[in-house]
Design a protein around this nucleic acid. Structure first.
Lengths: 102, 102
DNA sequence: TTATTTACTTTGTATTACAAAGTGCTTTTT
DNA sequence: AAAAAGCACTTTGTAATACAAAGTAAATAA
């Protein structure tokens, strides 16, 4: 058999993790999402979610907004331009891989 | 914002790893692939590939065939029925997630 | 006043991923 | 014939990752 092209070379390592994948896919279609909503959607502990959010932020994929509802803290997240581009690239790589399989 | 459905609940944890994802996608479209071809395609060290192959085998997703070319050992891998079904389910979950994003 | 919520941080553990080196057998090269 | 190299691993060790659980501080709700 001939050796064909590496099917996973276009994937972004940051998005291999399922929780970060989930966060990004939620933020692609929702302008702003709160910490709590993400936590409930993805069914994760808050400590775990917090560390993944830090990873995404450190990579410049998301922005954090620390605000208030009344005088109660309320943190929301949104995707950055870089995040949109990087995630779209990742999804394209995934789709190409899937296309190769079907 | 209302809390929508978990976008990653249908994903299979075994296929989160990029190397296992690559192996499965290669084995979906090729009857039989040798250890060496996989190694070259995915650009991994042999120790690393070997452990991922064991994981896939232990989960019943692939079958190992230890054979010879002449008197030289030759190991090939193929996907199982279970592997096909599980990987197809995973790809469907991925596609649904992508669809939700676009 | 006590309990609860929010959005974390800290701590600790378990799992994972990976490279590198070693192995035993064979073939190829010199 | 001897040395080098390929095959398909296993072993060893390390570093990174993931995660739960508990702790925290400021605020609100009961």
């Amino acid at each position: 058999m001939a050796v064909s092209k590496n099917p996973i070379s276009g994937l972004n390592k940051i998005f291999d993790n399922r929780i970060r994948l989930g966060v990004m896919s939620v933020l692609m279609v929702n302008e702003e999402v709160s910490f709590n909503d993400l936590k409930q959607m993805l069914e994760v502990t808050d400590g775990n979610l917090a560390t993944h959010m830090v990873t995404l932020e450190e990579n410049g994929f998301i922005k954090v907004h620390k605000g208030f509802i009344g005088r109660k803290t309320n943190t929301t997240y949104s995707i950055t331009k870089v995040g949109q581009k990087s995630f779209a690239d990742h999804l394209n790589a995934l789709e190409n891989m899937i296309k190769g399989v079907r």
